[in-house]
Design a binder for these strands. Structure first.
Lengths: 338, 338
DNA sequence: CTGAAAGCGCTTACAG
DNA sequence: CTGAAAGCGCTTACAG
């Protein structure tokens, strides 16, 4: 592997000059530059980013820590973040925390220690303000994309949970559903609470809210299936289900089909998140789509501002991100055929 | 951020000694060690891996390059590789090549240049021997996990495609299917060819092979759906479908349901790969499971041997990996109810 | 058992 | 416009 010294020797200049052409910094004679470029090419030289990082304190790489790569939401987020990062000239490194805040914190340390200029964390449930201060201590530019916590201190992808839930319920009403059930997420999660509130308030207005139409899930497919089974047993009259996320909606569909309910004519179904998975089913399932792409992009952009010192150098950026509209995506599961 | 120098000063020793306790190398007096440990703790010192890598030429990290994070097969592979890597004390970094061999090669270069000790590449379709020699030139320990290419030079996860396909067809026969169709993958892909061959040879034996029972797909869900539509139009008598991968099986189920075919009683269905996605459907879809976990583990272990110089220092390890048995996973899509 | 010193491959004031 | 030299934070022979 050729080093900057080899290039300098071949070109008959000093390493400083070579460094200048690599970084396009300072002045360098055109002929000298050509000679250096030629030598670099000849030696197939590529700078060692490790050494560069040491000298520079900068590696042009950022890390994204996700809670669970096998949850289909995250690959889609990864894609968005990766696109944005590469547009800014950053390489994206990934870490998978398996839903453990301890692992996530460890990854922040690892990445910080190793090479990255900043880190993006998608908060898993357990993130709380203690963790936030832990991260603060690590002193690396960090942006937490947060679905899980109601904390204004954090750059928060609130994605208008309340509004979206309202849209979902009103959509079910608009296609004629009279008995709308809800499979909610865990009490401790902010989006779950907000989505429930959207459901509750909308039905309350018309006096149709019934607490036994609400079943508890944990955002997993299995819980959506089980919740739907319970709902159907208790309330065979149910003709619409709003699941608080897409994975539970998938489970719900499975339960409905297993029970022989026709979707959407007997029971209409809608999820929340907008992952592509829902297009795989027959019928395809409607959803309230979070603008994952925009969120990923905004998170990267905020992080990079922080890295470049446009914001406080270290710690967690505190910016509310409630600016992205969710969108109703109507598919066959809410298009009545009769 | 504290450096080794700060620790040395606080403990009243030289940096060399501190380095020794960090690396547990050479002898150091117990008292001295305690004093140093104490100082490290007090300063919250963690070694800078960048500097360490520079001095060491080693960072205890490896990279995995996957073709497409949004294909559910890969998150499962990532999980397996990550587990194995962490068991060996390595951190895993991920890169996503979007099915482009150019991107993959670039990632190898980036990772090499930046920090990793070795790289694992899951070959996307386009990998050929030219790419292999490109990688060879980069001179970094590399293991290619290869589904796509019939090349003995490469550590190849052949996963017994032929055997698995035979198992799938025989399974369909054993539950009474008489008209078994196949949705095959692209001609240029080795596993697609092998799976087709397994299908072909098995039916040929009993004289049941009919070429019009074979439809072409490209391993995507959409293609599985379209292929099934064509099959059903041409041959309403079909009562069993073997899809060459799970994604196409998912698409096939969607088509069958759309056409009102009862699965499995009218048409039984089986996929190939063993990703968890297939459990989400109603009915759950049977499959031939590749031992993703074992493959990930073996790939990591081979790579680490290579890093440690137990194998040729650089380039691509040439080891055939055809040692892992595939496994039939029978689910509702092949359990006749009457 | 411990320290001084060179070196890993780069960058960046500072002189010239 | 260019080079010598110090420095980034570590490791590792080499002496002692």
């Amino acid at each position: 592997m050729a080093t900057i010294r080899d290039v300098a020797k071949l070109a008959g200049v000093s390493v400083a000059t070579v460094s200048r052409v690599i970084n396009q910094s300072g002045y360098v004679n055109k002929q000298t530059e050509d000679k250096i470029l030629e030598s670099m090419h000849q030696l197939q030289y590529t700078p060692n980013t490790l050494a560069r990082g040491l000298a520079n304190k900068k590696t042009d790489s950022i890390a994204l820590i996700i809670p669970n790569i096998t949850n289909p939401f995250f690959p889609e987020l990864v894609q968005a973040v990766e696109d944005a990062a590469s547009r800014y000239g950053y390489t994206l490194l990934l870490g998978n925390s398996y839903n453990s805040e301890e692992n996530a914190l460890q990854y922040v340390q690892i990445f910080k220690n190793r090479f990255v200029d900043g880190v993006l964390i998608f908060a898993s449930h357990q993130f709380d303000s203690k963790d936030v201060s832990e991260i603060d201590k690590i002193e690396i530019p960090t942006v937490v994309i947060d679905k899980a916590l109601d904390n204004n201190q954090i750059f928060s992808a609130k994605n208008r949970n309340f509004t979206g839930a309202t849209m979902a319920v009103e959509h079910l009403q608009s296609i004629g559903c009279k008995h709308i059930a809800h499979i909610r997420g865990p009490e401790k999660l902010y989006p779950a609470r907000e989505r429930f509130r959207g459901y509750h308030d909308t039905l309350q207005k018309t006096g149709e809210f019934r607490s036994s139409y609400v079943e508890q899930g944990d955002f997993s497919m299995e819980s959506g299936l089980a919740a739907t089974m319970r709902l159907l047993d208790k309330h065979p009259e149910i003709d619409g289900i709003f699941a608080a996320n897409d994975l539970m909606a998938a489970g719900s569909l499975k339960a409905l089909q297993r029970k022989g309910k026709k979707v959407p004519d007997e029971v209409a179904l809608i999820g929340y998140d907008g992952i592509h998975l829902l297009e795989m089913f027959e019928p395809e399932i409607s959803t309230i789509a979070i603008p994952i792409y925009d969120i990923g992009n905004a998170a990267v952009s905020v992080l990079i501002d922080q890295i470049n010192g446009k914001e406080s150098r270290f710690g967690i950026h505190s910016n509310i991100m409630d600016e992205f509209d969710v969108q109703l995506i109507q598919r066959a599961s809410t298009i009545k055929t009769k």
